[in-house]
């Protein structure tokens, strides 16, 4: 479970928040908005996972950001202030600024995705889409189960074949042959095994009616408040950000950055994971809201145990 109260909110609230944060980060290269998005996403990632994972994420961001930044600033003749020119190649100050802003935008998006990965765990994703896309989420769940099984079975199939056939061939061709043989074994095994699973699922009534799912997340008053506030902020931001973004241009000259109310609403919207911590002030008696754990009732039987093992 990710740190902080925001991760304990209903997955729909978290999903809407991340969609908005990533969508807005993606939609503009206005330097002030990019800087805000970078700062808040970085702060949230540090809060969620600490400094070291934050620095590691930044490290993986560097190659694409540098690449995109360079592509935008080199070979770009749209700006007015030319630094260097050689034939068709041209570097201008405006292009450099655009490259920096685009790199910042990409950093912000990647940081938001890192936060998303921490907060929106797979169970929440399946919970959200399990009703609307039952077949697809069943498949995603089964694939996630089969991946580690494939890796471990592949290892044992590989080892036993080596023991049976003998004559280890260390060349690339030998490796490829062994890999292909293992994959063939895995496909055959997997198909037979999974079709048995499917049969036992059908025997227990899969597909005969709409499934009910074990509701781990509840829709409380705080969820209603959060989603209302988020909706208002999204609309306000869309309007303010669009006006600011249209007024701002990189070419031919970088426009001056003026103060705007949009910065405040944007910061408020992005700061939502921190704002919801105010909830702790409201109900000092509930021990559970201090721990950051989801408030689940004790004694509800585990859905997996009820269903039994299907394999």
């Amino acid at each position: 479970m990710a740190k902080g109260l925001f991760a304990t909110y209903h997955p729909a609230v978290c999903m809407l928040f991340f969609l908005a944060a990533i969508g807005f980060a993606f939609s503009t290269q206005h330097p002030a908005y990019v800087a805000l998005s970078c700062t808040v996403s970085g702060a949230y990632l540090v809060y969620l996972r600490g400094w070291r994972p934050f620095l590691r994420t930044m490290g993986t961001c560097i190659p694409p950001v540098v690449f995109v930044g360079l592509l935008n600033s080199l070979f770009n003749a749209a700006g007015a202030t030319i630094l260097w020119q050689w034939g068709p190649f041209c570097i201008c100050v405006e292009g450099l600024w655009y490259g920096v802003a685009m790199g910042g935008m990409l950093t912000a998006v990647l940081l938001w995705f890192a936060c998303y990965n921490e907060v929106m765990t797979e169970d929440k994703f399946t919970y959200l889409f399990g009703r609307r896309l039952p077949t697809v989420s069943l498949m995603v769940t089964m694939v996630s189960r089969w991946v580690p099984r494939m890796v471990s079975r592949g290892r044992s199939a590989h080892d036993s074949q080596e023991a049976l056939i003998g004559g280890y061939d260390p060349s690339k061709k030998g490796k490829l042959q062994r890999g292909v043989r293992t994959a063939t074994v895995l496909v055959g095994l997997g198909m037979e095994d999974s079709i048995q699973t499917a049969d036992s699922m059908s025997a227990r009534g899969y597909g005969s009616a709409m499934r009910t799912s074990y509701a781990r997340f509840k829709w409380h008053a705080r969820e209603r408040v959060a989603i209302g506030a988020l909706g208002v902020l999204i609309v306000a931001n869309a309007a303010l950000l669009a006006t600011d973004a249209v007024a701002f241009a990189f070419y031919p000259l970088v426009s001056p950055i003026e103060l705007s109310w949009g910065y405040a609403t944007y910061a408020l919207m992005l700061g939502m994971p921190f704002c919801v911590e105010l909830e702790r002030l409201r109900r000092p008696r509930h021990g559970s809201s201090y721990t950051g754990q989801p408030r689940t009732r004790v004694g509800v039987p585990d859905a997996k145990k009820m269903g039994g093992s299907a394999t």
Binding site: L133, P134, T135, V136, L138, M139, M142, V143, W146, V147, R149, M150, V151, G154, A183, L186, V187, G190, M191, S194, I195, T197, A198, D199, M201, S202, Y206, G207
Partner: peptide, 24 residues
Amino acid sequence: FEKSRRRARDLMPVVILTALAVAG
């Protein structure tokens, strides 16, 4: 895929090939 109402069996080739691709 959702609307075509495939049987549970018919989903398994996709599941197995996908799992093998991810493992690969």
